[in-house]
Design a protein around this nucleic acid. Structure first.
Length: 427
RNA sequence: GUGGGCGUAGCGUAGCGGUUAACGCGUCAGGUUGUGGCCCUGAAGAUCGAGGGUUCGAUCCCCUCCGCCCACCCCA
């Protein structure tokens, strides 16, 4: 057992039984992106490692300790994509999308790789639905983007979700705020948790996000970034909240919301189940990144985007009791027995499929009983039975598997038509 | 990376320091002459996660590793 191969840690097989969830999400994505005017883009599974080191920020956890980096045979330093935004921005610059009509709305679904300790809702390979709007700094775009994601969840039947919104200002004013925050915390440094002391040096904004009880007393009185925004960022934030209100999207301002990527400015948001205390429950999040294109060597180009994890959305769907319909099953099962019937069975199955009916052949070596059991297990509603006697007569039996099991004999050439009319009679 | 819990056939479980490790579901095969769903019978299927140690003897005790789960960190 365990000496056999297993899927690598933190990865999983998506078995047939789970595929309806994936299809439901993909269908909903297709519908919603079409309605909102987003066009699909697919970027490579791996990119230059430096793209993420520069783009995501080389002090972020994603880059510092979670990236799958490797050197290929040509000596290139590559990384399995840990997040989509830098890759899509790279594509924007590489293909001159700046000369397309602005803004450019793009989406993708893409596997993401992060070398993290797996737990529920967190995997080393996961799949994200990702949307980016490039070339617009309009706050209405922020609201529209959030609205798209909200719409998606609604279509998937998710309830009890909440948008958490904040603004982390622009880099200059944010630095000023961070200084003020550090001044506030400096006198208490000795009382803080070890983690928070580390944050004080490396990422002071995270101080506000601490879950350690020792830090709690200081959090409430700390100056909040949203309350001290620079005038342009404040106006932007106001406009976003007004737009969300106009769209009837319920949201709360969460001053403690800090996202873990360096490139964010102004709008940041997450969508979470309201009554879920689990740590890994965020099912979508993103923000604005007006400075990223320049970091990547391009012209100043504002942008905003989000990532949404399929696996977590599925967990949420299950929690909500959403059960996507199974895909199409065989509706006709062709039972046959004996060497002389093999060719007729093949032709019957082919004729059924040609008529658009999902059809499955039985295994001619097995008994009729066994094949009929298979027919039942397959979910088929009609069985075609080809015994040696029938084939010799040039006929086949068409049997109703739903009710009492009535059957009739028809000429071989009429099998598909007979099955079709029987299926039609079921309504 | 840190701390804690867990790991018995495909799935869900029982079990005990000592004869052939049990049950349900599932799978396969039968239940008379060529026919499903219910029912009955039978069979296959587990080196009791892996490796090492303690012991006369370990699935059950100890160590290491692997994996899963939970929390932290962080994130989708």
């Amino acid at each position: 057992m365990s000496s056999r191969f297993q899927a690598p840690r933190g990865t999983q097989d998506v078995l047939p039984a789970m595929q309806p969830y994936w299809s439901a999400i993909n269908d909903a994505i297709l519908a919603v992106t079409r309605l909102y005017g987003y066009r699909r883009i697919d970027t490579p599974i791996f990119e230059a490692a430096a793209l993420f080191e520069k783009g995501s920020g080389d002090t972020t956890d994603i880059v510092e300790k979670e990236m799958y980096v490797f050197t290929d045979r040509g000596g290139e330093a590559l990384a399995l994509t840990p997040e989509a935004t830098p890759a899509i921005c790279r594509a924007y610059l590489e293909h001159g999308m700046g000369s397309w009509p602005q803004p450019v709305r793009l989406y993708t679904t893409h596997p993401m790789f992060r070398y993290d300790r797996p737990q529920k809702g967190r995997y080393r390979q996961h799949t994200q639905f990702d949307c980016e709007v490039l070339g617009s700094g309009d706050p209405l775009v922020d609201a529209e983007l959030i609205g798209l994601l909200w719409d998606l969840y609604r279509r998937l039947g998710l309830k009890g979700l909440q948008v958490r919104l904040s603004s982390i200002d622009d880099p200059g004013p944010r630095r000023a705020y961070v200084d003020r925050l550090k001044e506030y915390y400096r006198p208490f440094l000795g009382d803080l948790s070890e983690d928070s002391r580390r944050r004080f040096e490396r990422n002071p904004l995270r101080l506000l996000d601490s879950k350690d009880d020792r830090d709690a007393p200081y959090k409430s009185d700390a100056p909040k970034l949203v309350d001290h925004l620079s005038p342009p960022a404040a106006a932007h934030h106001e406009a976003v909240t007004a737009a969300l209100a106009a769209l009837d999207i319920p949201f709360v301002i969460d001053p403690l919301l800090v996202r873990g990527l360096d490139y964010y400015n102004r709008t940041v948001f997450e969508i979470v189940p309201v009554e879920d205390e689990r740590a890994q429950s965020t099912i979508g999040g993103g923000g604005r990144y007006d400075g990223l294109m320049e970091i990547l060597g391009g012209p100043p180009t504002p942008g905003i985007g989000f990532g949404c994890g399929f696996e977590r959305v599925i967990l949420e769907m299950q929690k909500n009791g959403v059960e996507p319909a199974e895909g199409p099953q065989a509706s006709v099962f062709v039972v046959h027995r004996g060497a002389a019937t093999a060719a007729a069975a093949l032709r019957a199955v082919a004729a059924l499929r040609a008529a658009g009916l999902p059809a499955l052949p039985g295994e001619g070596e097995r008994s009729f009983k066994s094949q009929m059991r298979s027919a039942d297990a397959s979910g088929a509603r009609v069985a075609i039975i080809l015994g040696e006697d029938e084939v010799a007569r040039g006929t086949a039996i068409v049997k109703d598997l739903r009710g009492e099991g009535g059957q009739r004999e028809v000429p071989l050439g009429e099998v598909a038509a007979a099955a079709e009319s029987l299926l039609a009679s079921f309504g």
